[in-house]
Design a protein around this nucleic acid. Sequence first.
DNA 1: CTGTTAGCGCTTTCAC
DNA 2: GTGAAAGCGCTAACAG
Lengths: 340, 340
Amino acid sequence: MPTIKDVAKHAGVSIATVSYVLNNKTTYVSEETRRLVQLSIEAVGYTPSITARNLQSHQTRLIGYAWHPTMSGQMNPILDQFMYYLAQAAEEHDYHILTFTCPLNNPLHIYADLIKSKRVDAFVLAGTNYNDARIPFLQSQNFPFVSFGRANPEWHFPLVDTDSEQGGYEATQYLISLGHRRIAMVGWPQGSLSGDYRLNGYKRALQEAGISVPESYLYRGEQYESTGRKALTCWLDQSDVEPPTAVVAVTDLIALGVMNEAQSRGLTVGRELSVIGFDNMPLLEYFKPALTTFEQQIPKVGQILITMIKQMFELPHNESAHLLVPPRLIIRESCGAPIE
Amino acid sequence: MPTIKDVAKHAGVSIATVSYVLNNKTTYVSEETRRLVQLSIEAVGYTPSITARNLQSHQTRLIGYAWHPTMSGQMNPILDQFMYYLAQAAEEHDYHILTFTCPLNNPLHIYADLIKSKRVDAFVLAGTNYNDARIPFLQSQNFPFVSFGRANPEWHFPLVDTDSEQGGYEATQYLISLGHRRIAMVGWPQGSLSGDYRLNGYKRALQEAGISVPESYLYRGEQYESTGRKALTCWLDQSDVEPPTAVVAVTDLIALGVMNEAQSRGLTVGRELSVIGFDNMPLLEYFKPALTTFEQQIPKVGQILITMIKQMFELPHNESAHLLVPPRLIIRESCGAPIE
DNA sequence: CTGTTAGCGCTTTCAC
DNA sequence: GTGAAAGCGCTAACAG
């Protein structure tokens, strides 16, 4: 592999000159030598060594991104996509993504190691939540990072997130527009960030439409298919309140549970019960009926995050941006007008 | 951030000595200074700069892994998992994964750039197929790589793959053991590597059991849900041959199509029609009935690949290993004894 | 055993 | 405009 020396020798100039043309210091070098050097670069087939450049410039052009273990059977389709678009956006700016694994319980020392060994220039966080220890830690280290997802509202750090409140609002509004009034929701346990935003949107839409629903219409549970099944069971089996005609599920997986339970009870989803989910999980479009859901604008998020990182490098003490990207409704077959 | 000089100063020794203890050149340094230096390292909070080390040692301790665009709605659950276990295995050996994106049509120049700029020490290939251009290219560059997946049988390169032939064989054998004799298969178009292996296994199992099936029992199509639907439609609508009682689908997505079509025709999957898939896609365990399928041993594959890479670094002209890992049957609800 | 020194491949002052 | 030379943080001969 040729080095800068080989190019210099070939062109009959000093390595400094070669370096100038490499870095487009046009001021320093005549058009003539410039062309000469350019030719020599091609001739010897030279590409600068990133490592050497990095040592000199105190950077790595690497952005760290943690890949968390997916519990078996589970998956996070959003983050899979995110990985791709993030990497792509990074590459457009001559950065690369260093993917590292991270235990869920105590991730801090992994981040610390990466910082201390100067392995990466910045981190991209994802899957943040309330009291995410990584955020105060990175802030205390004064290490650049951006986040896909919010955390405590009083914390200030650069982030992009999907506007889940808006999503919950639109989902509910959509059901209302179809004619539903008895609209229930399956949420995550209290304290889950996006879950609560989606829930708030749901509540706001009901309120604005002047609809009040019984308290039991809110069912909370973990991110399992069974949560959806239990929710519907609960609503259908209680005798004192009328069952809902439509359900907003906090995610597609839970929506799937609701649909499964409905179908096993002989209810036709899309007619006798409408169900709407979140996140546009793969495969669910092939379910009968295909699930109506929301997709997040992941490509956009990836691009924005990388742009934000670059800005941080340029003006380190920039105000921390805080951007929300609306999700987009994908209408399929699982929602229809109520029949009665 | 402290450098090796700071440690040397703090300990009152030369930077060489510090370097010796860092690299465990125990021969060169007395136990006493060793401890002294160790203490200084802790005291100043020093961690060696990987970049500096890399420049010196002509390596990056980075392994490149291409992340391909997933067509919308599609996904490759295997590769998502693979990414995680690969990264984890790499980290155990002080390597990291550099994830880069790559267009499907002309990936070569991306690999070339990464090599020329000395961005990575090796590549891990995945999703290989017949005539995969990357393989001869990397060989011509004499650049280290290992592959998760086979290519042309006459090409010799280090690889690990799931034993798809074995999978197809076991799937079919399982159906035979349940009592089926009219077993059909949905495959991928001719020339798809794993698809053909799975098909071969299917054929071998039938042959060994002395079962012959009509030619129309083999249906080929692309990786869509609709392929499964079309296959079953085809078998059910042809009047001259008896429809199959069991179907081996080359993947879960296609198996899903078969199940959907069966159910829309009022057939109970698991009783009137048995269906078996491949790859243990997430969510399919929540279908009614839950899909019986095969899972690949991804964690193992990741570990083996990293081990192979390390071996290549140590003995560059090693023979290229060629390892097959058997998939594992996951019995759920979609297969039962034939009724008749 | 320990320190001096010469690089690794590049960028960037600073003279000329 | 161009080149000599210092230095990024580290490793590894080579002396002593």
